[in-house]
Design a protein around this nucleic acid. Sequence first.
DNA 1: CCTACCGATCGGTAGG
DNA 2: CCTACCGATCGGTAGG
Lengths: 196, 196
Amino acid sequence: MAKTVRKKAGKKDLILEQASRMFREKGFTATSMRDLAESIGIEAASLYNHIQSKSEILQEIIFRTANDCNLHLDTIEIDGKDSIRKIESLIRFHVNMMVNRFDDYHVMINEWIHLSDPYLSTFANQRRSYVQKMEAIIENGVRSKQLKPVLPYVAMLTILSSVRGIEFWHRSSKKIPAQVIEDNLVQHLIGGLKKN
Amino acid sequence: MAKTVRKKAGKKDLILEQASRMFREKGFTATSMRDLAESIGIEAASLYNHIQSKSEILQEIIFRTANDCNLHLDTIEIDGKDSIRKIESLIRFHVNMMVNRFDDYHVMINEWIHLSDPYLSTFANQRRSYVQKMEAIIENGVRSKQLKPVLPYVAMLTILSSVRGIEFWHRSSKKIPAQVIEDNLVQHLIGGLKKN
DNA sequence: CCTACCGATCGGTAGG
DNA sequence: CCTACCGATCGGTAGG
């Protein structure tokens, strides 16, 4: 019986994994439950033994991923590094998400609009809270004169967006190793912020 | 008769304009022809007097917008400004697209995956050519020692992505004027590139 | 996990 | 520009 339970959990994970990949490739709306079932090797109706609805799949992917981001930010806030180290840790975390959990991260960023109502506003609130915390970290760096007098809002935008740009690298031939992209991006972004 | 022609052209423009807005808000796949028709005040079947298919609408929006980007880049390449001025012009152009033609630009960047096959590869080729030209401009700046020794690929990624981040500003309360965002982003990005 | 099937909605056409 | 309608496909359920 323990085996049955483990088996079922494994199947749901498989569904979420395949769904994440397909939602990233074709978008949530353009992916049908029949497409998803076929990629796993079962009939569409059988999916509903493991999940409640198509929407539920999207919710699980997005909130699982968002939660990892929130946990990392909380970790950063409590250990007393200076602003620049905090920002560097943020950049490296997001680059790693983009590289190692590409599907989940991409779905969170691009498909959240298709969440339905209680979840949609929950996600929007979480995201607002997240960027406000990031801006606070940057603002502290500006006040302590570690950083140039940038607008925290613009700096936050630049950091999060640049990481998102790695999607393009992911899609392309990837001649450049991930670690080189990461280090260069850190240098590039911190270089634009740090006071010399 | 001239009046009829003008009227028809106006109607098609109206369809493209509404479609661009709805594709941006809900995505191409999630927008139905009935949704689109309703926003204009006609029946879905009547749309087909002005356009051939749903795909054609997406194609027109995307290639019209891509063409404007390509034309601007060509303009930049022929007038003999130095690398930094060229890059600044690029940043300001894309920020302006994001601010003033938000729907079209957003649809091009986010919905191109839903182009069907001859158009899909044409777009991919155009985009590859565009970023290669951008990288060449940056590489020239590095060689002439105007810029720090950055990887052109990473710098290109950062610039295009940062502009894309303005989407977030667009969606939010917009307390900060567009011109301030634009100037700050230019300063921020050029500051990270320029050799002091 | 499957077969069989539901009502709803999709993009698009015919014919006026 | 509309009414009327097409075949296909959608998310999901019943019943085993």
